[in-house]
Design a binder for these strands. Sequence first.
DNA 1: TTAATAGTGTCTCTGAGACACTATGTG
DNA 2: CACATAGTGTCTCAGAGACACTATTAA
Lengths: 224, 224
Amino acid sequence: MTYPRPALAVDLALMTVRDGALRVLLVRRPDADTVGGDWALPGAYVRIDETLADTAQRILRDKVGLPGAYAEQLASYSALDRDPRERVISMTHLALLPAQQLAGLSDADHRLAQVHVDWPGETGGPAQAMAGGTPLPLAFDHAAILGDVVKRLRGKLDYTAIGLELLPAQFTLRQAQDIYQAILGRALTKPAFRRKLLDRDIIQPTGQREAASAFRPAELYTRK
Amino acid sequence: MTYPRPALAVDLALMTVRDGALRVLLVRRPDADTVGGDWALPGAYVRIDETLADTAQRILRDKVGLPGAYAEQLASYSALDRDPRERVISMTHLALLPAQQLAGLSDADHRLAQVHVDWPGETGGPAQAMAGGTPLPLAFDHAAILGDVVKRLRGKLDYTAIGLELLPAQFTLRQAQDIYQAILGRALTKPAFRRKLLDRDIIQPTGQREAASAFRPAELYTRK
DNA sequence: TTAATAGTGTCTCTGAGACACTATGTG
DNA sequence: CACATAGTGTCTCAGAGACACTATTAA
């Protein structure tokens, strides 16, 4: 093997829903002028003794301090000029965590930016990261990756239990509906949402009620 | 960068349907004793000046002599011991070609093996390559990859136009139904299949009829 | 009792499978 | 004319959205 090899990295799109908005964890780049943006998805090179899943969990541990989150492969990005510094192929992973587990992450170098897309359904296209109403410039091809993340999330919502990964251990159907609406970017009707989720046999009522903050408290459910 | 890097390869699952059976192109391994099987998906290392799509097309050109086929990313396989000779991560691609374009490929080193799965629908699991009623031993993790290929194909059949990639330029609805049935591994009813395909607005009648071999000839369609 | 949300019953529409039927070209 | 396949009409059933309704709890 004397051929030069492309470098292989994992970039992690850690998604959550907070305040009714789909969000992604971004880290600040020290080299914003060379990589085309201040903010980027956290990433790491794949080590010789790691699987891709290992690398994804290491990123979670190192940059977020939270291993054990749900993570799956998304897609590879291999354009020759995607990183101006070096030839690096990114095997992007998608990770999901409930917002409760991501409290206190928003320091100067970590941010849970809102994710905005200007296309409906699963049309596809790039996504924009927003913070306080203004767009955050994203490094590399991460705007395109983020768009693919949203597309994948929307596509898997109604034939997998992936949406439940964004909910705490116990949750109400209203909370679940809020999560789904934030990902899909549109309103859902309550009876249809309830039936669909209950008929799919992926959640279980606990018999308990939420802490009654105001008016009638809702039943708490858990994942099956 | 002084860290050792894993090697990155593309493996190509070139699928077709012939004689009512889903088939995959396999190449014979000269090193069957070290890699755990006689036959394998064709593959190549990713060169420093290639995207993954470039590598997939190069495999098609070199091993099949047929560039320009439909190809898409499937998934990455990165288990530490998947190749006993070297640490290599495979970014597997799925390619599709109509059987007519693969005539004359079955020499001693190339084979269009039948693909068998013992699970229904999109349950998932490994696949077996068969030739003449007997199983072909597959190298590396290629039996698992082949299973994922079938799962992906089945999943995309009814929300994309991917099935049409396996049909010649002009085709009858009966031919299309045969292709779909071979992939899905089950019979479909004629009226439902016709409506579904026609309503999706992805094919177009040509006004011509197939060469009348026997009885009433069917209308020929093309992709839109 | 009232307010506000939790939770449900019912109608309708759409898409797909089952089935039986008609249509048409060849020998 | 007979046959075998092409192509269609219709019934039914399941899933999902729309909408209006009832139920429950705190203040």
